[in-house]
Structure formats: C-alpha cells, structure tokens
C-alpha cells in the first residue's frame, strides 16, 4: 500500500481529516511532525501539507513554514517525482517555498495575496465550485473529473489570491496549463464574479501545479467534501439534489462527496508505482 505523509507543521489543524481522506481512498496515511528526523521523509510515496495556520500565518501565510528543513526534504522527494499536495495553508507554504510553479527551482514566483472582492474583505469561509482543466497535473490530482464538471468544495482562507508580478510567469502558467482547478459557477462555467470567484485570483486559479504536475497548491479543502453528508442540504445543483434525496439514508450520506476525486486520483496514480516498488 502506498504511504502518504501528512505533514504536521506547528499551527496546522486539518491533519486528522486529511489523513482520514487518504485512508478512505486506500492509502496508508501517517501524521509526521515537522521536527522528526530527516531520514523519515524518504520512506513516503506522497506528501500532503494540510490546512491550518502554520506559525499563525505570521508575516504572511506560509512564510515561516516555507523555511523549515522538513519542507526542503519534501522538495527533494518531489524532485524525484513523488507527489505533493498542499491544501489551503499547505498551498501557501508550497508557493512561499518556490515549489509552485517552480520554473526556476527554488525561486519564489507567485504569492497568495489577501482576498480581494467587492465589499468583502478578509477571511472567507464558504462553499464554492471548481472545475478541473487540462494540464500536466490532471493525471495526478484530477483523473476522473469530467471536463467542465462543477465540483463543490469549501474554502476557508484570507490569503488565497494567486498572483505574480512577473508577466512571464503568468504567461507560462497559462500556456503550460498549470492552473489545474479554476473557480466556476454552479453550472461549470468559469467564475467571473463574487461569490463564485471568491478572491480575485489570476486566471480564476483555485489550484496551480508545477510544470511536471506532481505538486499541487490547492486553496479549497477537498478533505472537507469527502462524504456526501458534508454537502450543504440546501445547495443548488446536482450535488444538492443528491444530498437532499439521501436524508434518512445513512449509507448514502456516508458515501463519496465531491472532493474525493482529488484523493482518488492521487491513489490511482500511486497504485502502479507502489506495486512496482513492492516487487523490486
């Protein structure tokens, strides 16, 4: 069974449900503390930086955590082709560490700036819709998501606006298809305004990968949309219909939710690799 490390940096707070999400798709998950010995990291096949407030987002979200030795070690493992998923605060760490988009290795080429929307500043918790685009990250994190299919997931962040000051970086992100997930309307069209576009990110980016596609910085929380019961009962659209129809049926509500596609994709991509590893 492929092994995933859920990286526990001080202040992170989604490690348990993230581990449950990985286990739900058949991966072995272990929560690994930031200060465990360097040798621990090479024993894992995948890394997830969960959500939370690493170092309380002091200075900037992700700024202090990006300097940790553990993040360096994970970067080395990623360079060997292992997948890294940064969720929300984890995404902020990956961006601050220069792992996404990583055109020039180690260089910081993006920021996750404070949300900007008309009449709505600051922290924002709500369900939004995203859709998976074509790009190198698809085989890692979005296998099985139909093109244009609206996927409801919750967000909870104050600094989630992907932005670069370098026009060349922006151009390459677009041409190389590194925006794997974009904010969308409930019908699956690209989001143009608040609240469907919750933070004003460039290219309506909700998730950006590196050029190889094995590192994803994803602002929404797919681990909070893992079971149907987590979908709000009064949500519009197909998932809302499913949720309402399942009231009273525990088995259905305990079935898959919309965010599971990200973890299932990761598990599917890891399965043959782990099998090869096991044979060797």
């Amino acid at each position: 069974m492929a092994r995933a490390a859920v990286v526990q940096i001080p202040g992170v707070n989604c490690e348990y449900e993230t581990a449950r999400a990985l286990e739900a798709v058949g991966l072995e998950a272990r929560i690994v503390r930031w200060n465990e010995p360097d040798s621990v990291w090479s024993g894992f096949d995948a890394f997830v930086l969960p959500g939370g407030f690493a170092f309380q987002d002091r200075i900037r979200a992700g700024a202090v955590a990006a300097k940790l030795n553990a993040v360096d070690r994970i970067a080395s493992e990623a360079a060997r082709g292992k997948p890294v998923l940064g969720i929300c605060n984890g995404a902020q760490v990956l961006v601050e560490a220069g792992l996404v988009p990583g055109f020039r290795p180690g260089h910081v080429e993006l920021t996750l700036a404070p949300n900007r929307a008309p009449r709505r500043e600051g922290y924002l918790c709500r369900w939004v819709w995203v859709r998976a685009e074509e790009g190198p990250g698809r085989e890692w994190f979005a296998r099985g998501a139909r093109p244009g299919e609206p996927i409801p997931v919750p967000i909870a962040h104050g600094e989630g606006r992907f932005q670069t000051a370098d026009p060349e970086v922006r151009r390459r992100i677009q041409t190389d298809g590194l925006v794997l997930f974009r904010y969308a309307t409930p019908a699956g069209a690209p989001a143009e305004e608040y609240p469907f576009d919750p933070n004003g990110a460039m290219l309506q980016a909700a998730g950006v990968t590196n050029a190889a596609g094995n590192i994803l910085a994803f602002m929404p929380h797919p681990e909070r949309a893992l079971w149907l019961r987590q979908v709000p009962i009064d949500m519009a659209g197909d998932w809302g219909e499913r949720r309402r129809a399942a009231v009273g049926t525990w088995g259905s509500l305990e079935g898959p939710g919309p965010g599971r596609v990200v973890f299932e994709s990761l598990a599917a991509r890891l399965r043959p690799r782990a099998a090869i590893g096991a044979r060797a």
């Binding site: 707070n13 348990y16 449900e17 929380h221 987590q230």
Partner: peptide, 19 residues
Amino acid sequence: IVRFYDTEVQGRMVIRAGE
C-alpha cells in the same frame, strides 16, 4: 458574520450554522 467562521474544519459537520 457566519462567513468568517470555519464550520467545516475537522470534517464532522452534517448541518451547519444558519442552515
């Protein structure tokens, strides 16, 4: 007000604030 509050963390929610 509620939009500032994280209702989803821990993943245990069935029916949340305001619903």
